[in-house]
């Protein structure tokens, strides 16, 4: 404390911008909301895949091409990658203690997730639109 005695700044001024006073709450909420969405979308996805368990190519394609199925699949793919990135981010931040490796991994999972999400969405659109 004695070291700070001459510091006239308000303690809050010194604390702001450090540690958890950043965007943690936003991350937490987004993780929960995508989780709640994935409860519904995940169950729908499992049921849809199970209904296709022994279907041939044409039946599988026709299933994905139905408007509601295409819409829900796009939602599922986007939410799935979003939630995965949020979760992996926390794991990397917890266990990777070399800063440059941490940053490289954090950027890499985001690149991969965007690539995966766009590839998945594009595939669904190609099937749904028949191009």
């Amino acid at each position: 404390m004695s070291a700070n005695a001459k510091d006239l700044r308000n303690p809050l001024k010194r604390a702001r911008g450090f540690g958890s006073a950043q965007s943690g709450v936003g991350h937490w909420w987004t993780q929960r909301i995508t989780a709640a969405a994935l409860v519904l979308l995940g169950l729908w996805f499992v049921i849809t895949v199970l209904s296709l368990a022994h279907a041939d190519y044409a039946a599988a394609k026709a299933m994905v091409a139905k408007p509601w199925n295409a819409l829900l699949l796009i939602l599922f793919v986007a939410t799935m990658f979003w939630h995965a990135v949020l979760g992996l981010q926390v794991v990397i931040e917890d266990y990777v203690h070399t800063r440059w490796k941490e940053v490289v991994l954090l950027v890499a999972i985001k690149f991969l997730a965007v690539l995966g999400a766009l590839a998945g969405v594009l595939a669904v659109l190609r099937i749904a639109l028949g191009v």
Partner: peptide, 29 residues
């Protein structure tokens, strides 16, 4: 945590399945 990491890898299989379905019957087979 462990299953979360495993599922994150599994997302790639979901995308692979969709891509193969879009690519044609041979790829899907």
């Amino acid at each position: 945590r462990a299953t979360g990491i495993a599922l994150a890898v599994g997302t790639l299989v979901v995308v692979w399945g969709l891509l193969s379905l879009a690519a044609g019957e041979a790829a899907f087979d």
